[in-house]
């Protein structure tokens, strides 16, 4: 069965996708305040040198997220 969503770790470098929702409530609170809203486009820029963190772009803003944080943002396929 095909999954109906992806998360940031699934994105390749320079690939982008629209957000659907954020699964973790505490994180949702923090990320929405920073401007990561449902329906915004997230672009993957690069992973961190030692892995487990992602450099993303949201509407011209650059944000660094941990693996768990990145994995809780559901993206459109």
């Amino acid at each position: 069965m095909q999954r109906r969503y992806r998360t940031i770790p699934d994105l390749k470098t320079n690939e982008s996708a629209r957000t659907i929702s954020i699964t973790d409530a505490t994180l949702a609170c923090k990320l929405t305040a920073m401007g990561v809203l449902p329906g915004t486009r997230i672009e993957m820029v690069r992973t961190s040198p030692f892995g487990k963190a992602y450099y993303i772009k949201v509407d011209g803003i650059r944000i660094a997220l941990r693996e768990e944080e990145a994995a809780s943002i559901l993206l459109e396929v």
Binding site: T26, L27, K30, L31, M34, A53, Y55, I61, R62, I63, A64, L65, R66, E69
Partner: peptide, 10 residues
Amino acid sequence: EPSFLAIELP
């Protein structure tokens, strides 16, 4: 307790 990175890169 939850821990965050989520930091803006200016």
